[in-house]
Amino acid sequence: MSCYDAMEAVLHDETLIESAAVHGRWQVRYAAAMAIAQHPEPRWLPVLHNMLVIESTRPLYTQPVVQFSVGTGDTRMAEQIGPIDVTFDSAYDEATKDAWRCRGRVRQAVLFAIASIGVADNELLAVLHGFLADPKEDFAVKAATARALGVIAHPDSVPFLQIAQQFDEWCTNREATNALQRIKS
């Protein structure tokens, strides 16, 4: 089954979520998290937690600067058509490159799924707090974490959200501010 078909399948059939959540392709795991958000129930929390564990083993943020056959990789690439080739500074295995493609996408989808469920145990909360405390984490993950913590509204999250509020990125800053207001109310 192609990656596309596996993604479509899990979004059509809830019974496929558990297997899709540990699928070898991150796109399918991303779709699994989206499927959970369509069926938000606490029973998925262990599955979601495990998905974050899988992501924690991947080198999501280690990509070196690469060279492109056209352009420099900035926003001006948006308007181009191909062919555009990419050259790495060294040979990397496909799993590593796949992690670089993914970065925080699966994490974000998992976080929004947790937000849709609205609860988390202490162990899962600690993972979420870790995202906010990690200076190397992508802002998309930090922002999603802040939103999820705002929905969960646990007072232990306050100092972590206050850290996120200091982060100089607008989405994260705003989500953290909104989350703190939600917790305080």
Binding site: Q63, A78, Q80, K97
Partner: peptide, 19 residues
């Protein structure tokens, strides 16, 4: 076809990832 052919390379760009 040329557009579709460039999509995978874009994953490794700052543009796609951050903008």
């Amino acid at each position: 076809r040329r557009y579709v052919g460039k999509l995978d390379s874009m994953y490794f760009s700052t543009g796609l990832q951050f903008h």
